[in-house]
Write a protein that binds this DNA or RNA. Structure first.
Lengths: 236, 236
DNA sequence: TCAGTTTTAGTCATTGTGACTATAACTAGC
DNA sequence: GCTAGTTATAGTCACAATGACTAAAACTGA
């Protein structure tokens, strides 16, 4: 790698290096209330700069990899999961993001469905954190997470993205809990139901979720497709 | 530059190179109807690949330049203008965008106010084109322009961006013409007026535009700030 | 002075939405 | 087996936003 062996003079003239990072969101029941809350996995830095601090999963872009493939690989390597939603967030290229060299990071954000296996996929250097209790991260990663949260909330409020947090079948209350967790608000169940039922991408199934200590709710299914990013446009 | 002197084997292992491109929009009266239409400047390629074809203005990222600075420089070098609005569009990184090497392009899009000077800033290798009549461009630049158009229309419909096409003072009819040109629709003047007057960022001035052959319209002023991209967030 | 033009104000019906009430359908505990 | 507790689901009401439309106001040019 030319960046590790370069001296200061060489780094001045070398082109900015290119990295891919990924902000990975999942919902997980809070220990306290049991309601779902937003979590994301971070990786501990094992070398300078910012050695010991937590950072977003990422790494250099391989020559034969597309950008979303690199982001998916990040995701799989840190969580063992495949994304149910993946979208480019932003390219961060400020001059002093890293103290040692000029790095341009193309950041993706993803939603995953947390299985028991995935959240157990932790180690000394990979840990899940509540999105609202992160502490100080390496580089400009706090700002990146803030922006990813802003985008997630925007997409949730205007787009049809909540379903990617959930499995194939879900109740309307589960969808509402996603909204309440991510947007940190309380929503009226009756109005929320009316709103969701007006969107054509939600299909009623004949099944009901049994086992609760109350009237069994109907199960629904999401039939829509993800948005139309340049990455997803060609695939029909 | 290591990319021009590299042979095939070296290109396989070298990191993907990084470029900045810019989609620059301006409104200009159509010759036929006199109504404003959307135009953008392109640059003729003077070397392979795609030699002779038209392409988006762009170039490599200088070591000491931030991403929006590089985009602004593109813009100034091809149009002689400063952007009234500049926003990151997307990072395009497909494996085969360029037939000769792997290039990742971080693309910005901009709005400029066309002065007479600017549109005269054409040459053999720089020309303005109507956005709906571009022909075949180099690389994946047709897809990039399509996506930029989609973003522009979205921002126009939901955000407060139309005013960056106009000068400091404008009539509501001029704003409406921006919407009609970009979205390619007809809008009822009375309803449009009501809609605009409901947004608090538009300030009524005491001035009127004289000289038309009809009732002189009041002049307005835009008092809002651009959005909150990561690039613009720190600047208060 | 009048015809032609655009600006500006206002009405009316429809739709979307927040607040709220009421009933339905289940479980748990007695 | 009955009842209280809980959530699901349906519906009402007032209000805001919006599309279609009518009409008056204020200028120019003939």
């Amino acid at each position: 790698m030319y960046t590790t062996s370069a001296n200061v003079a060489e780094r001045q003239t070398a082109p900015p290096s290119l990295a891919i990072s990924t902000v990975i969101f999942a919902l997980r029941p809070s220990e306290a209330s049991g309601r779902p809350t937003l979590w994301l996995p971070l990786v501990r830095r094992i070398r300078e700069p910012f050695k010991g601090l937590w950072a977003l999963p990422g790494g250099p872009l391989t020559h034969s990899e597309s950008l979303p493939d690199a982001a998916s690989r990040n995701l799989r390597e840190t969580t063992g999961l495949a994304p149910s939603y993946l979208e480019q967030l932003y390219a961060f290229g400020g001059l002093h993001r890293s103290p040692t060299q000029r790095v341009v990071s193309i950041v993706y954000w993803a939603l995953v469905q947390p299985t028991e296996a995935a959240l157990a996929d932790e180690s000394e250097n990979v840990r899940w954190f509540r999105a609202d209790k992160l502490g100080d991260l390496a580089f400009d990663h706090n700002a990146i997470v803030d922006y990813a949260l802003w985008r997630l909330r925007n997409k949730l409020a205007y787009g049809s993205i909540a379903y990617h947090f959930l499995g194939e079948y879900f109740t309307l209350a589960q969808v509402r809990e996603v909204y309440e967790a991510v947007l940190d608000t309380h929503l009226d169940p009756a109005n929320f139901r009316r709103h969701i039922k007006a969107t054509p991408e939600i299909e009623e199934t004949g099944e009901y979720l049994q086992g609760g200590k109350h009237r069994p709710p109907r199960l629904y299914r999401f039939t829509g497709r993800p948005g139309l990013d340049p990455d997803n446009r060609s695939t029909p």
